[in-house]
Design a protein around this nucleic acid. Structure first.
Lengths: 192, 192
DNA sequence: TCAGTCATGACACGTCGTGTCATGACTATC
DNA sequence: GATAGTCATGACACGACGTGTCATGACTGA
């Protein structure tokens, strides 16, 4: 027996997501969340920087994960090759341990609230920052590194959105491939 | 003589940007801003939805402007052609009436505060949404429209960032072209 | 047994953002 | 040139957010 009920953080995440879906993000107060989790308001803010962050915890590690995956990839791979080969494994790593149902519920909550969408965009921005640094560490020049990072993140984001809109079928790697094919097709079109 | 000092909105924007740069966004309270502008706190929130929005007012029109520019472009242009030809005029439209100095000061304030960066990302997201719809209206399929929209916004964002980092030299159209060239070069590299 | 730690509780407080009513200078109409 | 309407602002109250600070009490290690 612990001195307190263990898993406070997880209980808070669960209660928050449930309440956001039941009555909306704005209508949900932090005291409501903590009451459902059997904790106090102050404890909520010890676990999460703000009310929005409760849906994005655990994603702090994404930038490091991205950096590690890039460092481990064969140095011979060019940026577009790395994106083609690395996006699916990266996605698997990021979503590991998360059920499709959880991801769909989380998506619904975020889509219903601009403030949450804003926070999600910031997470993607941090991911792009890590990718940019990773590309630079592979010898890519600054401009190309930033472009490659933005392309990777855009592809990832679009693929995940489509995958969730289709309730997980076809699977994420297949959807990422479809998206990459469309990207190649698009960027090979005449441009001037 | 008006019944009140005219230009309340502009005075608030000016006072807010000054204070954000002087003492930081978080340290600046809305009463401080309104005191400097000679107004009351309540009036601030009549002009701006929240404290962050004071740096982004006027950008509500960007999505419509984008939609109009896209509708006016020759229907024969493919998506990549449209991006190549339309980005510079769109940027000119968006920044018209804003001095380089203002843009640099605004940039400094945003870069210093994650919360402001978050809001900026949302503005870009809305711009991407408008672009996506514009591409669809031109007969592009959903996936390609979304990809093209994200490519356009990423290119725009990166070019503007670089342009401001160089204090406006070379000029924005030239920087946009450089960025587009780098994008073409990157996406034409072998991918698998 | 005793001192240290650490997650939580309890409480105060400043700021944000909104609802609501009042004020008073302009505007249109008769 | 009265009179009613409008509209940006002022004034005030209030709930929610997020933080600083100290207390509590179950564990941990010597």
């Amino acid at each position: 027996m612990g001195r307190w009920q263990p898993g406070a953080r997880e209980r808070l995440e669960q209660a928050a997501l449930d309440l956001f879906l039941e009555q909306g993000f704005t209508q949900t107060t932090v005291p409501q969340i903590t009451a459902r989790a059997g904790l106090t308001t102050r404890t909520f803010f010890r676990h999460f920087a703000d009310k929005r962050e409760v849906l994005f915890a655990g994603e702090e590690q994404v930038p490091e994960q991205v950096a590690r995956l890039m460092a481990e990839a064969p140095p011979s791979l060019g940026p577009m090759e790395l994106i083609s080969e690395g996006l699916a494994p990266a996605a698997a790593k990021i979503f590991e341990g998360r059920s499709l149902d959880y991801l769909l519920r989380r998506r619904a909550a975020i889509d219903a609230e601009p403030a949450l969408h804003e926070r999600e965009l910031r997470k993607f921005s941090l991911m792009a920052e890590a990718l940019k640094q990773g590309f630079r560490d592979r010898g890519i020049d600054d401009l190309a590194a930033q472009l490659a990072a933005e392309i990777a993140v855009a592809t990832f984001r679009i693929a995940v959105t489509r995958w969730l809109n289709q309730h997980g079928d076809p699977d994420l790697p297949a959807t990422i491939n479809q998206t990459l094919v469309a990207m190649r097709h698009l960027t090979n079109m005449p441009s001037t």
